[in-house]
Nucleic acid binder design. Structure first.
Lengths: 246, 246
DNA sequence: GTGGTCCAATGGTCCAACCAATTTCCGCAC
DNA sequence: GTGCGGAAATTGGTTGGACCATTGGACCAC
C-alpha cells in the first residue's frame, strides 16, 4: 500500500490581477460606490495600484464578463451591480440555445425552481409580503384585461416578487438569467402573440395559496402554470412545423 | 433609388476581441478539439489572426472567466469545456457567499434541481444508462468502504451520471457550478471530515428507483438525500458556534 | 533510476505609444 | 445671454515589443 498524498494540497501562489480586483473591491467599499457610478480611470488605477494598465484591463475584463461592470469607450467604466468582498461567481454557458429543445430544457429548470420558490414563499411570506404580491397580481390582471393579454412585463414582476419573498436571491438570479435568454427568442415576432394566455388564471391561484400559507398548494399551482406554458410552447412549435432555428 | 449597402462593410473595426473569439470557435470546431486538449499559443494566435497578443489575451481572459479554458503559465492554454457558435452566457454572482446562510441557499437550489433531475432520469433512462449509473454507484460504495467515507470524488461522479441521463445538460451545468463553490469551503480543513456520511445509503435507494423507472420514488429519495446534507450542515454549524466566516 | 542543470516554450507583466469614441469646453454667430 | 459647432481633453481599445516566471523536456553525472 502506498502513502496517502492527499494531505499535500497545492501551494497557494498569488495572482496579480486577483490582487487588483481585491483592491478594487476595497475601493468601491470605501468610496461607497453605487451601481451606475463611475470607477476610476484605467490609467489612474494602474498608477495608484503600481501595476501596468494591461493588468488593470485584464482584471476589469473579468469583471465585465461577470456583468459587474460596464465599459464605455471615451466615457469610462461604470459599476453595474453591487460588489462586496465575499462574492461567489458562477458563470454558466449554455450550449446551443437557438432551438426548440433548448427552450424546453430551460423550462424544465424553471419548473423545478418555480415550484420550490412558490413553496418557500408560502412558508416564509410575512403579511407585508403577501400584500406586496397581491399588489403585483392586481397590476398584472389589470394590464392583462386592458391590453388583451399583453402583460408580459407585469407578469414578470409578479413572479419576481415571489422569488424575492422566498428569501433566497438565487431563485431570482437564475430564473432572471434564463428569462433574459427567453426573450431573445420571442421578441422576434413569430406569430405567438397570445403566448401565455392559458397560464393567466394560475397566477391568482398561486397567490391564494401563498396568502393561505399553503406551501404544497403553491407548489402544485406553480407546476400547473409551467405545464400550461410548456403546452403553449409545444403547440406553437407544432404549428410552425418545428423549425430548427427560431 | 439608392444602392443596397448591406453587402459591404461588416468590417473588422468593431469588437476586435469578439472577432477573435469567433475565430477561435471556428478553429476549435475545425480541429475538433476536445476538452483537455491544448489551444494554439497566444503568440501563434496573435500572428495568425493579425491582431496584437494583448487582444488575444483579452479574449482568452473572457473565456477563462466563463470557465471555457484554463491557462497554465509555462505550459499552455487548455480547453476545459466544449464550445460551439451559439452559446449563451449567464453570469451569476451571489453576494455574501462565505457564510452559512449562503451555503443553505445553494442547497435550496440544489434540492429543487436534484429532485427534478432524479425524476426525469427515472423516466428517461435506457437500460445502458441504468447500467452506467449502477457502475458509478458500485465504484462509489467501494471507495466509501475502503477509504472510510472519503468518497467525495466518486460521489460526485454518481450524481453527474444522473444529471446526464436526465437528458438536460442544464442540470449538470448549474449544479456543477455550485459544486465548485461548495468545494472552496470544504477544501479548507475544518474538522468536518465525515461530512456526507449520513447521505450514503440514499445513493443506492435513488438508483433502485431509477432502475425501477419509479419517477416519484426517485424524487422522494433525492429529497431525503439533500435533507441529510442540510442536517449535517446545520449540525456542523451549530458545533462550530456558527462562525460568520468558514 | 535519481537528482541536477540547462534550455526552449509559454503564459504573465510591463511600457510607451497610437487609435477611436465620448465628453468637455471655448469661442463665435445670433 | 443663448445656441451651436468644432477643437481639445478624456477615456477605453489596440498595438508592438520587451522582459520575467514557470513549466517541461533533454541531457548528464552519479
Amino acid at each position: 500500500m502506498s502513502l496517502d498524498y492527499n494531505s499535500l494540497p497545492p501551494v497557494h501562489t498569488i495572482a496579480r490581477d486577483d490582487a487588483v480586483l481585491k483592491a478594487l473591491v476595497g475601493f468601491v467599499g470605501a468610496a461607497d460606490l453605487q451601481p451606475g457610478q463611475k470607477l476610476p480611470t484605467e490609467r489612474i488605477l494602474a498608477d495608484r495600484l503600481k501595476v501596468s494598465r494591461n493588468t488593470v484591463r485584464e482584471a476589469l475584463t473579468r469583471w465585465e464578463g461577470l456583468g459587474l461592470v460596464e465599459r464605455r469607450q471615451g466615457s469610462g467604466t461604470y459599476l453595474k451591480a453591487a460588489v462586496s468582498a465575499d462574492m461567489l461567481h458562477m458563470p454558466l454557458t449554455l450550449a446551443g440555445g437557438h432551438d426548440f429543445a433548448s427552450l424546453m430544457q430551460t423550462l424544465e429548470i424553471r419548473r423545478a425552481l418555480e415550484a420550490e420558490a412558490a413553496s418557500l414563499c408560502a412558508e416564509r411570506a410575512s403579511p407585508a409580503d403577501v400584500a406586496e404580491i397581491e399588489r403585483k397580481l392586481d397590476v398584472m390582471e389589470q394590464a392583462f384585461r386592458t391590453r388583451d393579454g399583453m402583460s408580459a412585463e407585469e407578469d414578470w414582476e409578479f413572479h419576481q416578487a415571489i422569488y424575492r419573498v422566498s428569501g433566497n436571491p438565487l431563485f431570482e438570479q437564475i430564473i432572471a438569467a434564463m428569462h433574459e435568454l427567453f426573450h431573445r427568442f420571442w421578441e422576434h415576432p413569430l406569430g405567438v402573440r397570445d403566448f401565455g394566455h392559458a397560464s393567466f388564471p394560475y397566477h391568482r391561484t398561486i397567490y391564494e395559496c401563498i396568502a393561505a400559507r399553503d406551501s404544497k398548494g403553491a407548489r402544485a399551482e406553480a407546476l400547473k402554470l409551467i405545464a400550461t406554458v410548456e403546452d403553449d410552447l409545444k403547440r406553437g412549435a407544432a404549428k410552425l412545423k418545428l423549425p430548427g432555428q427560431i
